[in-house]
């Protein structure tokens, strides 16, 4: 049982290792989906939001990891 838990944790860690980045990306995809499906935003504009949103989140996450922690 302990091994199964450990395996599950490692599998989840494959995709959700960085919690903050994961939540931000999921929020971005959800917002894009809502805008395209329910607000009627052009799908291509939604794609651009998704693309540049991902780029921005990536850079922000890298900077966040490199920022000195207050001691």
């Amino acid at each position: 049982m302990a091994m199964l838990k450990e395996l599950a944790a490692e599998l989840i860690g494959m995709f959700f290792a960085e919690k903050r980045l994961t939540l931000e990306v999921l929020a971005l995809v959800a917002v894009t989906g809502l805008l395209v499906d329910f607000v009627g935003l052009d799908a291509l504009v939604g794609g651009v939001i998704l693309l540049f949103g991902s780029l921005g989140l990536l850079i922000a996450s890298v900077c966040q990891a490199a920022r000195p922690r207050p001691s």
């Binding site: 995709f15 959700f16 994961t22 991902s54 989140l57 990536l58 996450s61 890298v62 990891a65």
Partner: peptide, 16 residues
Amino acid sequence: ILLLLFGLGWLRRASL
């Protein structure tokens, strides 16, 4: 979505 998370994680680690 899973691939996006997986790939962003890789690219983040590569940048770091």
